[in-house]
Amino acid sequence: MEIIIPILICLGIAAVCAIILTVSNILFGVQEDEKFLAIRDALPGANCGACGYSGCDGYARALSEGKISETNLCVPGGDTTSQAIASVLGVEAGKTVKVFAYVGCHGTCEATKKDEKHLRDGFKTCREAAEHWEGENVCSYACIGLGDCAAACPNNAIIINDGVAKIISSLCTGCGLCAKNCPHSTIKMVEDGTIIAIGCSNHDKGALTRKMCTNGCIGCTKCARTCPNSAITMDNNLPILDHSKCTSCGLCVDACPVHVIHKDVFVCDKCFL
């Protein structure tokens, strides 16, 4: 019989606790906005920050409180998420542009000798190195290759191969964190379905570029002259591709004497989460 009293005491205290919690929840409980909950469910929950908010919760709160009306800020979620949010809010869905990361640099260790520079200077992050990244024969547009982007990527979609960041397109969700963390802005977010990409970001004159990197663009303008749709324009010795005009014919790829323009199918599997 002695065991009854402790059991009763424990049960009694537990019951009092339960009552206090239930009553206080009824009395003081804050009802979460239904809209907020519905929007949060619609978001992918990746908390990548591509929308510009601290996470999915932050974006959902801003939407539910009416601070913003753009339903298309979620890049990983894409059109499906945009439509889901729009149906919760009762507005028309905005189009999301599918993007993924592209590294506009092919300056490998062999082409740039940057591995020697890294060893000499002992920097551990790109940001650190970019502060001191100057001097002769050093490309100030290049991928530094110390992997700030790889560290920022929530999906481990970036590896550093031969001194240059490489995007594993099957893992990229297009959140853009790598582009934000690249101190040279070498990583660019390009639209999904892009086939032609320009693999150099150097705006210097050809001779100077080639001194720094044997894979660099010489600015010969041959691609711009070859393009039948005038999709390529030259901007300070570097071709700029207008994706809306590009038909992916690939003539520029063949024309480029230094093989800086690449043809590849950049379709990002995870962009359609």
Partner: peptide, 23 residues
């Protein structure tokens, strides 16, 4: 019984404080 009862009470208390603070 103090360990059992204290865990119970502390857990309840924290939840209670959280509800009240949130409001």
């Amino acid at each position: 019984l103090q360990t059992i009862v204290f865990i119970l009470v502390i857990a309840t208390l924290v939840q209670f404080v959280e509800i009240v603070l949130k409001r």
